[in-house]
Nucleic acid binder design. Structure first.
Length: 127
RNA sequence: AGAGUUGGCUGGACAGUCGCCUGAUCACUCACUUUUAAGCUAACCACGUCGGCUGCACUUGAGCCCCUAUAGCAUAAAAGUGAGUGAUCAGGAGGAAAGUCCGGGCUCCACAGGACAGAGUGCCAGGUAAUCCCUGGGGGGCGCGAGCCUACGGAAAGUGCAGCAGAAAAUAAACCGCCGAUCGAUCAAUAGGGGCCUGCCCCUUUGGUAGGAGGUAAGGGUGAAAUGGUGCGGUAAGAGCGCACCGCGCGGGUGGUAACAUUCCGUGGCUAGGUAAACCCCGCUCGGAGCAAGACCAAAUAGGAAUCCAUUGGCGUGGUCCGCGCAGGAUUCGGGUAGGUUGCUUGAGGUAUGUGGUGACGCAUACCCUAGAUGAAUGACUGUCCACGACAGAACCCGGCUUAUAGGCCGACUCUCUUC
């Protein structure tokens, strides 16, 4: 039932949680428009948090739009097995993209994280 | 019909699927509190020794009592509170939510007084909780007009400033020009007088020429601005020097609550230039910080305070003992961090009607409750339609101002043209 849901359990809420991801990030994917950082969590589900600086995206309407689209995309990733806390850092160029382009940009980087995670699991099992 | 002025309203619509936040109701789970029910615990271990008993031993030690059930422990049910999950229902950004430029409410701090500094403000009257806002009125400017703009107190309190041009920029001055009366020089003339050398000289008068102490502010030219304008008289030339009209100042009257107006009366020949978003003067206003205000609950860690225990032993003080201090243990307390709760949406609130007022707005009655997030909700996708959707996202709350804005709708008014 909660497959498509998006409650507070799937969000990063505290400054400490954000700081932990920055300190312990193992996965990283970035383009000119967006940067994803991720650190493993023990909860058995992924969580997501946003950092959209006012310096990068000046208008509040644009910041809200980006958050909503990426959150909506993240919500629909029902088969995502990535047990990580993910931080999305938004850069200036993302505000110029359309809704559809923001979505594909985010999903492409998210799958990059999944591939990195799989590669790590393989090396861990060898070691 | 075209051009324009002005006031107000609106700010994509509908359907489906999947989500987010808040509230209400219901169900389940967990925690806490209260009540009720039935139940378990007087045992064991350790310690203390005010007293008692037992009993060994001769003064200490051992065992029991010395104390609880009106207590403690866990269980179940019901009720309440809180949290979580699920279901259903309801609600969920703006006209500017923006800039944070003013004004208030609210909160805390300081204090409730006075003075100075500083900042703001500035025609008048009214509205308001209040304002730098709004309404009405006055003055000035722009527009054929509807209308628009206006930082609009004081320049005879003082100080300062004015590039370029121009002769001169604030107190009068004089470049060109005009005049040159009064002054001597020179020429001429006629008239008059005088002298003698009898055709010359002198004096007076008149006119001219060049000069000139000086007079003048009409004219020229410069400038944003040059010490009222026009005309006539007047004069050597001119000039408010005089007069008429216009303008201006002052006093009075009249109208107006007032700013102010004045086809009214008198008076002054006109003096008093500009600049105060230059200093300044005058009147009025202003304590500071802000919801990250403030209030409450409060883990861990460190530290603090109080009480009790141990003070046999340790460290310090000291020759030693007592004592004192430090370190130790237990309990309690307050401050307070993370975190949480609250402040937090019922308010100078909306809508309708009536009513007072030119209007801003006030008053009365009825009805309505309309976001409350906090790493921060109010959305995404699909389809259909059309005028193809601008500027843009609440963060304690209101009243204004300013700035941004695709379009669409309604009202009032002005000018021009055409037809009747």
């Amino acid at each position: 039932m909660a497959v498509y849901g998006f409650s507070k359990q799937q969000r990063l809420l505290k400054a400490r949680e954000f700081q932990r991801v920055f300190d312990q990030s193992r996965l990283k994917a970035s383009t000119r428009a967006i940067l994803l950082l991720a650190a493993a969590n023990p909860l058995g589900r992924p969580r997501i948090g946003f950092i959209i600086a006012k310096k990068q995206v000046r208008l509040a309407v644009q910041r809200n739009r980006i958050k909503r689209i990426i959150r909506e995309s993240f919500r629909n990733q029902n088969n995502l097995t990535l047990n990580y806390d993910i931080i999305v850092l938004v850069r200036k160029e993302l505000a110029n993209l359309s809704n559809q382009d923001i979505r594909t940009e985010f999903e492409r980087q998210l799958f990059k994280l999944v591939r990195q995670d799989n590669a790590l699991k393989v090396t861990d099992s060898h070691a």
